[in-house]
Simulated scan of single mutants.
Amino acid sequence: MKRRDLLSFASFGALGAAGLLTGCGFELRKEPVYHFKTLALTGFVPHSPLAQELRRQVQRSTVRLVEDPNRADVIIDAEREVRDKTSVATTAAGQITEWQLRLSLDYSLRTAGGDILLPRTELRLTRDMNYSESAALAKEQEEASLQKAMQVEAVGLLLRRLAAVHLPN
């Protein structure tokens, strides 16, 4: 087979695959569309990394963050935010070989008037991480990276839930 024929065949194959994907309704995820204009965050601990990530992501959208909950269309009440790490596996000598990282957020959504938009919801994320004493510094950096990834994922889940909220008339 000549090179030109091979390239022609490959391009027709790529066009065929693209045609199949458009026919099945596949579409990349878009930025969520919110049905409210202002948002307030309450109950987060001071300098919470999760709240900071949430603020950063909300600033990219059309929603405006307000400090006063009485002036917000929607209020996120963080009831509990916990990050922890537990050992999952150890050697016979008692050395830890695997950790489980957890991020938990309990929150509810309400309006300034007190209408409950979403009752208390639990958001739980876990990641398993192998551990070795000989690579402690690298594993520390890996843990920080996994914590950051869980934080970004939690904020993404929360924002998608916010996009499903419709204010009462």
Rank of each mutant, 00 (worst) to 15 (best):
E133P: 06
R4D: 13
A93Y: 08
A135Q: 13
V74A: 09
Q141G: 10
E53D: 13
A72S: 10
E98C: 10
R124K: 14
S104F: 12
V165L: 06
C24F: 08
R120H: 10
L105M: 04
Y34F: 15
A17C: 14
V88H: 05
F9H: 12
S108N: 11
R4L: 14
T90A: 12
L39T: 07
A51N: 05
Q52L: 14
L20N: 06
D128S: 14
R71H: 13
L123C: 11
G94E: 07
L6D: 07
Y107K: 02
S134K: 08
S87I: 03
A149H: 07
R110L: 04
A164C: 05
S132M: 08
R64F: 05
L137P: 10
T38E: 01
L167V: 04
L167P: 07
P119K: 06
D115K: 13
E67G: 13
H166G: 03
L21M: 13
D77H: 14
L15R: 01
L65V: 09
W99A: 00
R4N: 12
V155H: 02
T111Y: 02
K30W: 05
A17E: 02
S108L: 12
E53R: 12
L105W: 00
L158Q: 00
L54A: 08
L117I: 01
Q59Y: 08
P46I: 02
E133F: 11
L162A: 11
V165Y: 04
I116E: 11
L109S: 03
I76Q: 03
Q95P: 02
E122R: 13
K37A: 07
L158M: 12
L109V: 04
A154K: 00
V88G: 02
V88R: 10
A149V: 03
A89N: 07
P119R: 05
A51K: 04
V58Y: 03
A154T: 07
D84M: 00
T86D: 15
E153V: 04
D5M: 14
A93F: 08
E153H: 06
A144P: 11
E143M: 13
L54K: 02
R29C: 01
V33D: 08
S132F: 07
S8V: 14
F9T: 14
G156D: 09
E31I: 01
L65G: 07
A78Y: 02
Y34S: 06
F12H: 09
A14R: 00
H47Q: 10
F44S: 03
M150D: 00
T91F: 10
S61H: 04
T22A: 10
L39W: 10
L167A: 04
Q52F: 06
F12T: 13
